[in-house]
Structure formats: structure tokens, C-alpha cells
Design a protein around this nucleic acid. Structure first.
Lengths: 71, 71
DNA sequence: CGAATTTATACCTTATCGGGTATAATGTCA
DNA sequence: TGACATTATACCCGATAAGGTATAAATTCG
């Protein structure tokens, strides 16, 4: 399960919102939230960002522990 | 310009790679990298993640300064 | 400056995402 | 337990992302 999926699911529940209500409030489709929380990886960046914004966050690069390449 | 776009552009240059070379090495299309660095917002999450992984990073939620909602 | 390299932009095709709707599965609470 | 609310899954359609190719613009370097 993706980090983002968990984040959204937890944040949503913390606010006591249903997926439907969150969809209305954040402006994305219900199906999108379902897909995201279900772990779909091929979502559109702007939509995810729109959702995260509702929770006071945005998408950004986070360093990996193990580091992929040496950059 | 999105945070991510700048991140990729800088990281790529820091490694002295051309867009073409980065495309080959990271496994995404050249056009994708072009679009991303050009600020396109409607990219797919998994592709961006794939690229960030090459730089030892991943996509994740980052707190906003001003905070959108009260979450 | 001129030549070569790199990046930006445009056009085209294929695959699929987002959204709607319907239905099934699951969870919640009396 | 049953009734209700919520979430998960499946199908359809329109819009568009991704990638390829070609060309123009910009950058680099002698």
C-alpha cells in the first residue's frame, strides 16, 4: 500500500469524513478517492495534489532510506 | 513552476545528464521528462515516482506552510 | 561567429484515467 | 440478528497522458 493512500485514508478518517463527503469537499471524484485509497498507482499528479491540499499538504520528493541511485 | 519540476531539473544537471540520457537510465520516456521539466501538472503519479526513485527519492505528502484545511 | 549539442514545441496514435452509475461486499450499531 | 451506512468492484464513455517522430529554438563551445 502506497504511502499516499494510507495518508489520505487516515486523514479522512481523522476528520470523520466518508469518501463521498471528501470527494464533494475536495473537488475530486468519488471514484478517484476510491481508487487512490485502494492503492492505485497510476493516478494523476494534479488530482492527488488537489486532494492533499485539502489536508494542508502537497506532493513533493522525499528522500529514500536505502537511496536508489547515488544522487 | 512546480517543486517537482525544479527538483528533477536540478538533480539531472547535478549529475551532468541530458534529458535523453536520463530518460534511458530512469526508464521513462523522453517526452515525459520534457513535459515534467516544462511544468506540466497532469502527469501520472507512477511515472513521476519512477523518475524520483532514480534520484533516491519518492513522492509523498509534504505539509504546507499556510495549511489549506485544518487537518 | 559557426557547428554541434541540447532543449522546446507540434502532430499523431494508442492506452487509460477520471468520472458516472450500478451492484456487491463489508462494516456499524440497535 | 437485521437495517442502514459505507466501501469495494465492475462496466461504460469522453478526454487526455505517454510515447514516438519531426522540427525549431536555445545553449554550449571551438
Amino acid at each position: 500500500m502506497s504511502h499516499i493512500a494510507l495518508f489520505v485514508k487516515e486523514k479522512r478518517r481523522a476528520l470523520g469524513l466518508t469518501q463521498e463527503r471528501l470527494a464533494e469537499m475536495s473537488g475530486v471524484g468519488l471514484r478517484f478517492i476510491r481508487d487512490l485509497e485502494q492503492g492505485k498507482e497510476t493516478l494523476r499528479l494534479d488530482k492527488v495534489d488537489q486532494l492533499l491540499f485539502f489536508f494542508g499538504h502537497t506532493l513533493g520528493p522525499i528522500p529514500l532510506k536505502g537511496g536508489g541511485n547515488g544522487a
